[in-house]
């Protein structure tokens, strides 16, 4: 069974007059962790949001090119955008819990996936919270508003909520950048486990983090993909001059 193979073909994206993504071609392998690297403003977040068509919420956006998820064209007119999004959980740069209790945040995700009765939800909420490594910290305060949690806990709650929708793919936009080092470690550990069962696409600025987590690396610069390949090849033996400069820290 194929789960979450993503193929991006000749993707171009404009915000108004600005050409943000330029002829992007990427083959993201399934059941691996792909890291997208690149200096600030190169289009990493935009690329991630294009994968689940979230970028279309913006009124200035123009997209052409093709993206296939398990051979399904996500821009095809017969494709339901909510189906596409349900296949992908998105973890954003800053956690954004919904304005409801901890329990309901996760239950909301479950309900989108068709699990609507509270009786069915209770064990699944626990399962998803455990999967996100949050259960022990919140099991006594499930009725508390989600914003009362610490930022690190909120990020894990968002992960649990995303998992509740039962996606195949997890998109993560610098998921540890707003966190303290300890929470960051917890999330990182989480991703190492997640990649057993999900296709993960993660944006990061931190080269060491990329090295620790990635199976496959994509390097972008000013909206273009400069180089992509398996993690060892990419770090040990980069082919492009730009990549070598970046790895040396020239753009920071």
């Amino acid at each position: 069974m194929q789960r979450g193979k993503i193929s991006i073909q000749n993707l171009n994206l404009h915000f108004g007059k600005h050409h943000i993504l330029k002829d992007v071609n990427i083959e993201i392998p399934e059941n691996q962790l792909t890291v997208i690297l690149g200096p600030s403003g190169c289009g990493k977040t935009t690329l991630l949001k294009t994968l689940n068509r979230l970028v279309e919420l913006d009124d200035m956006v123009k997209i052409d090119g093709k993206i296939f998820i398990d051979n399904e064209d996500i821009f095809h007119t017969s494709t339901d955008v909510t189906d596409i999004r349900r296949k992908m959980g998105l973890l954003s740069q800053r956690p954004s819990p919904l304005p409801m209790s901890i329990f309901k945040n996760v239950a909301y995700g479950l309900s989108l996936n068709g699990v609507r009765s509270k009786k069915q939800q209770i064990p699944l909420v626990e399962k998803n919270l455990r999967e996100a490594n949050l259960w022990d910290e919140v099991k006594h305060r499930l009725k508390d508003p989600a914003i009362k949690l610490s930022i690190g806990q909120q990020q894990r709650l968002c992960l649990a909520r995303g998992l509740a929708v039962n996606p195949q793919i997890i998109l993560a936009d610098e998921p540890t950048s707003a966190l303290d080092p300890i929470s960051a470690k917890v999330i990182e550990q989480q991703f190492l486990e997640l990649k057993q069962n999900y296709t993960v696409v993660m944006v990061t600025h931190v080269l060491r983090q990329a090295r620790r987590l990635a199976d496959y690396v994509v390097f972008m610069y000013l909206g273009e993909v400069i180089e992509q390949g398996p993690v060892h090849e990419f770090f040990e033996n980069p082919k492009m001059e730009k990549t070598r400069e970046y790895l040396k820290g020239a753009f920071n």
Binding site: L57, T82, I84, L98, V165
Partner: peptide
């Protein structure tokens, strides 16, 4: 906008975002 994005990114329909997130 990040709140609406979070709700939409989970695959909520516009009605679900309106009545279960926005109104709340």
């Amino acid at each position: 906008i990040t709140l609406l994005e979070a709700a939409f990114s989970m695959g909520s329909t516009k009605a679900e975002v309106s009545f279960r997130v926005l109104i709340r």
